[in-house]
Every structure is written in structure tokens, then in C-alpha cells.
Simulated assay, not measured.
Amino acid sequence: MKISDLEFYAVRLPQRKAEESVCAIILRLVSDTDAEGWGECHLNWLPESLPMWRDYLLPLLAGRSIFRLEDFREIEPLQKIAGLRAGLEMACWDLIGRVANQPLCHLWGGRYREHVPLAIRIPSMSESNLSQWLHTWTEQGFYTQILSLTGDIEKDLSFIHAVKDASADHIQLQLDGRHSYLAKNIEPLLQGIAGIEVDCFIDPFAEEPEACEGYVWQAEEIPLGATISSPGEVVSIALARAADYVVIDVEKTGGLWTAKECAVVAQAAGLEVLLRYPQALGLATAALLQLAGCTRNITMASECQYEQLREDILSERLELLDGALAVPIGPGLGIEVDRGKLEEYWLF
């Protein structure tokens, strides 16, 4: 079965906050048997540029087997643009699953879990609105919440304590340092959060993990997490003993299969896994669920913003139960695209 056609759609979907929206590129891949597969990626492409990208990419893809996913690494633009490679690979996997009439989690080892808990990233907001939103999220079952840090110790400590005060200890807190702190400057922050239960501190250091090898993490009660994009980076983290968790951003790895490889290497190294697909709009959410559904060493909630969307482009909205999404069991990604919704939110 070979690739015969490729379509791009730029879509913008409204979020629950009425003034906000999020954009994505939706891909439709067609085989020489007229079977189709769908993918999603997030690129800074102008909608009017999509026909040009199709004309450029289709000759490079046409005639290639949908089963030879490793061949994508040989195509120059896909080598350079990890998000595009991830979207195309997702569409191929969707096609493969449809041909096999099985959800992807069955093809990748079997469904280990039926529901995947989700984490909410707390956006920047005033402390007066914080309590209301935290209450809303916990009522929906989103008990794991992620707080992005800025590198400003005073500001970060103020926000962390405001979150804990507003939540009355009803949430599980993850801190995302976003590489904001030098190892030599982080002690005042750790002292300021002493006594606050933190599930994981992701990417605290501005330095590479190897550069922090001699640093002794003083907050032994707080597990460290490190975002990675390849199996080799997992090996480096393990050898340096630089983290307890690896955070796999599926799009940054360049695709679902590389993300799965990262999880396998992490399991062999004794590391736990967090999955992240923060801008997932429906298709990518389903892809994350398929991956999480068959990956044993995921022990914390996965991050995506699907439940912050007022609308999606799926024929049926993904099932949410107490802050967790059900792993869809239809073939491929397990979902169907609603062409009417796709046209409604299509930008070009």
C-alpha cells in the first residue's frame, strides 16, 4: 500500500475561554487503495502557504509504502521539521491501523490501561481568578496541575504558594522549570517550597544534565524530570543519573514510534515516563491516548489541552471520566474526523 495523495488543512478551534483559540495543521494522507489516514501537527505555517507545501512534499512521498516509516528520516524537509514528520507519521499509523482494523495500542503491544489521566497546565492569571479555576478543574477530576516557572524566584514562589493556598492541598502539583534556573541559584527556591508536596520538578536547570552531574539535588523528596526528544537523550539522562522521570513530548520526538522507543529505553533504564502533547486538538489527543494506553511505565498524568477546547473536529468527542480520557478502541487512532467541522474551522 503506497501513498498517492496528501492534503493540508489549517484549522483554528475555540477554547473554553471565549477570547482564546488554538491553531493546528491537519493532514489527510490517501493510499493507492483510496484508504485514508489523518494526522495533526503544529507549525508556524501561513494558511495560504499550504498548497505550496503540498506541491513540494507530495512528489517526495508519492509511491512510498505507508509501512516504511523509517524512510521518512531520509526525506530532507522531514529531517529538519520534527513536527511535520510527527504529523505525517501519525497519518501513516492511522492508515496502518485502519488496514489492520485494530487500534494502534493493540499493534504496539496491547492496551495496558483503558483510561489515561490528564494534567492541566495552569495559565498565567490573577490570584483572584485562581481559586475559581482550580475549583473548576478539580471538580472535573483534574487533580494533577502543572505550574510553569519563570526564573524569577520571588514571582515563582508567590505563584506556587498562591496555588497551594487556593487548592487547599486538593491537587497534585508539578513544577515546570522550563530551564529557568542555574544550579547554583536554585537553593532559595527549594527552601521556599519546603513543606509543599511536589510530585515532580521538570527541567529546573538552564544547564544540560551532564553539566549538572556534580550538583547534589538538595530536595530529595521532589523527583526530577527531564524533557527528552530521542532515545539517545534517555540514555544520557540515565547514565548521568540526572532525573527520575523523562518527559516525552511526542511532537518534538518527531513521531509516535520514536516516542514509543524513548519509553522502552526509559523502562530498561528504570526511569518513569510522563507524556506531553500540549497542543493536541483531537487527532493528536487520540494519538497520545493510544501511546499512553500501551506504555506501562507512565505513572503520572499526561499533559494535553483537549479538555480546554470548546469544540474539536471529531465526529464524537473523546470520553472524559473524572479527569481521564478513555483510550479509543476504533481502528487506527480510534476516532473519525467530522468533515463538516473541519470545513467550519478551516482557515484556508
Rank of each mutant, 00 (worst) to 15 (best):
S4I: 03
L6W: 09
F8Q: 09
V11E: 12
Q15D: 13
Q15W: 11
E20Q: 15
S21V: 01
C23K: 15
G39Q: 13
G39A: 11
L43V: 13
W45K: 06
L46F: 08
L50H: 05
D55P: 09
D55F: 06
Y56D: 11
L58G: 06
L60S: 09
I66G: 13
L78P: 11
R85D: 07
A86Y: 06
E89W: 06
A91N: 03
A91K: 05
D94V: 07
L95Y: 05
G97Y: 02
V99T: 06
A100S: 06
P103G: 02
C105A: 06
P117S: 11
I120W: 15
I122N: 08
P123A: 11
S126H: 06
S128R: 12
L130W: 04
H135W: 09
T138F: 04
F142Q: 08
Y143A: 13
L147R: 14
T150E: 15
E154H: 12
L157W: 10
L157F: 07
L157N: 08
A162V: 03
V163Q: 06
A166W: 04
A168T: 01
D169W: 04
H170G: 01
I171G: 06
I171M: 03
L173E: 04
R178G: 01
S180R: 07
A183H: 05
K184R: 00
N185E: 07
E197Y: 07
V198Y: 01
F205H: 04
A206K: 14
A211I: 07
I222C: 08
S229L: 00
S230G: 04
S230E: 02
P231W: 02
G232R: 03
V234M: 02
V235R: 10
A243K: 06
D244K: 09
V246E: 12
V250E: 12
L256A: 15
L256E: 05
T258M: 12
T258I: 15
K260C: 06
C262V: 10
V265P: 11
A266V: 11
L271S: 10
L274E: 12
L275F: 15
Y277W: 15
P278V: 10
A284W: 11
L288P: 08
L289Y: 09
Q290K: 13
Q290S: 12
I298K: 02
T299A: 05
M300D: 01
Q308I: 00
R310Y: 01
I313D: 02
R317N: 00
E319Q: 00
L320A: 01
L320N: 02
L321H: 08
L321P: 00
A326F: 01
L333R: 03
E336A: 13
K341N: 01
L342A: 04
